[in-house]
């Protein structure tokens, strides 16, 4: 079975490392790259053609919600999951869903929870 391609978008090196590790050890998902902000994510979505994007909300430069707004217009196929410490702020959560995010993972996260959400997409 072909592995689902996931792009990780986070300005934090340590979060990107955590997510890449969870994805690469999953067996059915593969990480196709790491973008450090929203603008890089839009470029890498074009070059790497991921099926899923795991994206931080709060990043310097183009933030996650702005990138999500662009991606939901440019690419109807890619499924975006926001990964953020702000997941528990109700209006941030619903704003992300309204802009087209499939789910929002709150930090701190657990590997099992991340994989369950990515596999349910």
């Amino acid at each position: 079975m072909e592995k689902k391609k996931v792009l990780v978008v986070d300005d934090s090196l340590s979060v990107a490392r955590q997510l890449e590790k969870i994805i690469s050890e999953s067996g059915d998902l593969t990480c196709v790259g790491h973008a450090k902000n929203g603008a890089e994510a839009i470029k890498m979505n074009h070059t790497e053609n991921p099926e899923i994007i795991c994206m931080d909300m709060n990043m310097p430069g183009m933030d996650g919600l702005t990138a999500l707004r662009t991606l939901s217009v440019m690419d109807k196929e890619v499924k975006v999951v926001m990964v953020t410490s702000l997941g528990g702020v109700g209006d941030k959560f619903t704003e992300a869903l309204k802009l087209g995010a499939k789910n929002v993972i709150s930090k701190p996260f657990e590997a099992d929870n991340v994989l369950r959400i990515l596999r349910e997409l």
Binding site: G90, T94, V104, S106, E120
Partner: peptide, 15 residues
């Protein structure tokens, strides 16, 4: 494992 609001909990748990 984080502070959440009820709606987020329900979506995260796929309820």
């Amino acid at each position: 494992m984080a502070v959440k609001f009820f709606g987020q909990f329900l979506v995260e748990q796929n309820i």
